[in-house]
């Protein structure tokens, strides 16, 4: 039993080590100008929160939640911005940048000549995308607490949710990137991303949509992500949060498997 298990465990640490070496490469690229871009990325969800949540919120007042309670519009929008920023942070790194590294810089052709395998590259890149996303999420939750849009306890609970959302979208983005043929295809990614951003129950409750649209919206990943974060930060969540978590875990695993396979096929020609 132990004899059979040991090589597998050694294998796992080797996978982890090799994936980490891919993440390390990204850390080594950090330069002053990139740091500023990295930090400024945090501003985006905050600005949306202030503009739409507070600015437009002043025109709206309070909104009803599914459990019947009402919250100020800003408290309604804030968790959606948290989920959306976890999504866009992860996608930025795993679509555009990932594609550039694979097709443009031919970075992985070099890595492939080493013991590192395609799946480990995918894992390492995802780890890097997450390092960035995790920082954004933590900072944003801090702002939400400071603006009294949620309580510190709920913010703590929402943090792992935001990390999961980032991982799920990161894996999804990476899998999608392996199907991209040119930069033009990324117009489509941006379009899909913005459409999700607008219609995933982010700015108005999904109940406001016509029935057909509503069903469509409810199966998209960002809707599940918003449902999860909003349920936690407003304290209005119920058993459906479990469904959200399972859904996002499924997306994560599926994305990673597809990305690893596709990369293997693209790179091991």
């Amino acid at each position: 039993m132990v004899g059979a298990l040991l090589p597998r465990l050694v294998g796992l640490t080797a996978v982890a080590r090799r994936s980490a070496s891919v993440t390390e490469r990204n850390i080594a690229t950090l330069r002053s100008s990139y740091w500023v871009v990295l930090i400024s990325g945090f501003l985006e969800p905050l600005l949306y929160l202030l503009s739409i949540g507070v600015g437009v919120g002043a025109l709206i007042g309070e909104l009803p939640l599914p459990d019947g309670s009402t919250v100020p519009y800003a408290a309604f929008v804030a968790p959606a911005m948290l989920a959306a920023s976890a999504m866009s942070g992860a996608l930025a790194e795993t679509t555009f940048n990932f594609f550039a590294k694979m097709k443009f810089m031919k970075l992985y052709d070099g890595v492939l000549a080493t013991p590192v395998r395609p799946f480990e590259i995918a894992l390492g890149e995802l780890g890097w995308a997450m390092a960035r996303g995790v920082l954004y999420s933590a900072a944003f939750l801090g702002v939400m607490v400071a603006m009294e849009l949620t309580t510190p306890t709920r913010a703590l609970a929402a943090f792992p949710a935001a990390v999961l959302i980032g991982f799920a979208f990161g894996a999804l983005g990476m899998a999608a990137s392996t199907y991209m043929r040119s930069w033009q295809d990324f117009d489509l990614v941006g379009f899909v991303q913005f459409t999700l951003f607008l219609f995933s129950g982010t700015f108005v409750p999904a109940e406001a949509y016509p029935a057909v649209l509503r069903w469509l919206v409810e199966v998209t990943p960002l809707y599940r992500a918003v449902d999860l974060t909003r349920g936690i930060t407003t304290g209005s969540g119920d058993w459906s949060l479990l469904l959200d978590v399972l859904y996002l875990l499924g997306v994560l695993v599926l994305g990673l498997v597809v990305a690893g396979r596709r990369m293997g096929r693209l790179l091991y020609r």
Partner: peptide
Amino acid sequence: FLLPLLTVVGFGLGVGAYVD
């Protein structure tokens, strides 16, 4: 074209419905 139009629908109609 499409993104601005979606913004019109999402905000103008969606959020607009809640602006009394």
